[in-house]
Simulated scan of single mutants.
Amino acid sequence: MPENNAPTPDSSVPASDARRREPMFPDGPAPDPAGSHHERRIRSFQPRRSRVTTGQGESLRRLWPKWGLDIDGLSRLDLGELFDDPKLPVVLEIGFGMGEATAQMAAADPGTGILACDVHTPGQGNLLGLAERNGLTNVRVANGDAIILLREMLAPDSLAGIRVYFPDPWPKKRHHKRRLIQPEFLALAATRLAPGGLLHCATDWEPYAEQMLEVLSAAPDFENTQPDGGFAPRPDFRPLTRFEGQGLDKGHVVHDVMFTRRER
């Protein structure tokens, strides 16, 4: 017989599902921060909870309470409070991999806050460790769905920029609906960018680059930074990442797409 206050096992929940819902780090990123209180829809990402190294795990345990947040969609973020500076311009980076490029950009521009969003637990731990070792107080790490973050947790006109570097290209035609850069995403992003805020995308998948350019050119809230209406040269502030280098070695062509939010 279980003790009076002890939970009774739920035989209707498979053990494997129960284990997946258990947090890897009790005070760290949650496995499904938004839970069931937001609609289920086609996602542009797949959670990847691959092996976490000892160093990454230690960074998550120590630094998540200080610099990490779960995207639960339940409350509006105060970015000034989050970054301990109400005047700091904040850029949202959607998908940062292992965080090396994010750390480089944060170090090169300490006057800008980077709210870095991803679902990859090892990358979250790695970026937190990089931030600590390099004294980067302008980085915060968000765990979960960037759409929920934008829609439910960020105020209108609160972002100085949005960066989407090397998102999943979903190359198969039947998966194109999963690509992040779609008209619906752009309409939402425009409401959260301040006037003149920069939306900067980069990809080494040429068909996706063409789609990015096409849908952004058609978006009424955005204006191409390039007078000829084409792709932009890689700006100095975007580092050449290891992933990008691997693509270049394979003969891939990297395209940057840079649009600003129009004045309303």
Rank of each mutant, 00 (worst) to 15 (best):
E152R: 15
T241D: 03
N138S: 03
D70T: 06
G28I: 05
R262W: 11
Q124F: 11
I148E: 05
T121W: 11
K250Q: 14
W170T: 05
L199E: 05
R51Q: 11
E93Y: 07
P2W: 14
K173R: 15
E58N: 10
L213M: 08
P31R: 05
L213C: 01
M258I: 11
N126D: 13
D32T: 07
S75K: 14
A146R: 02
G161Y: 06
D168A: 09
R20C: 10
V164P: 00
Q226I: 14
D17I: 15
D236N: 10
G111D: 15
L69C: 04
T53S: 15
Q211F: 11
F96C: 10
G55A: 14
D118R: 05
G111P: 14
R264D: 14
R262F: 07
D221L: 08
F166E: 03
V254K: 02
N224M: 03
G129E: 04
L180T: 07
C117I: 10
D145E: 04
A219C: 10
C201D: 02
G135K: 05
L63T: 10
L136W: 10
L248N: 08
L79F: 06
L130C: 05
T225K: 06
P33I: 14
A160L: 12
R174Q: 12
A6Y: 13
L69F: 04
G251F: 04
F25V: 07
L149G: 03
V13L: 15
E3D: 15
H120S: 10
F259I: 06
C201A: 15
I114D: 00
D236P: 02
G113I: 02
V254F: 04
Q46L: 13
I181N: 07
K173P: 09
M258S: 01
E39K: 11
R76D: 12
F45H: 08
R238H: 07
F45R: 03
S16H: 12
H176P: 10
C117T: 07
V253C: 07
R61I: 08
R174I: 02
P171T: 06
H175F: 08
T191R: 06
N4V: 11
L199Q: 03
P122I: 05
F222A: 02
L188Q: 08
A107H: 07
P65D: 11
A18H: 00
H252I: 08
D109T: 13
W205S: 02
G125W: 04
L213Q: 00
R76A: 15
P65N: 08
P9Y: 12
P156G: 03
P65R: 03
F237R: 15
E244R: 00
G28Q: 00
E39Q: 12
N134A: 15
I94Y: 00
F45A: 09
R174Y: 07
T8V: 13
A131V: 01
I162K: 01
M212A: 04
G247R: 08
K177D: 01
H175Q: 02
D78A: 09
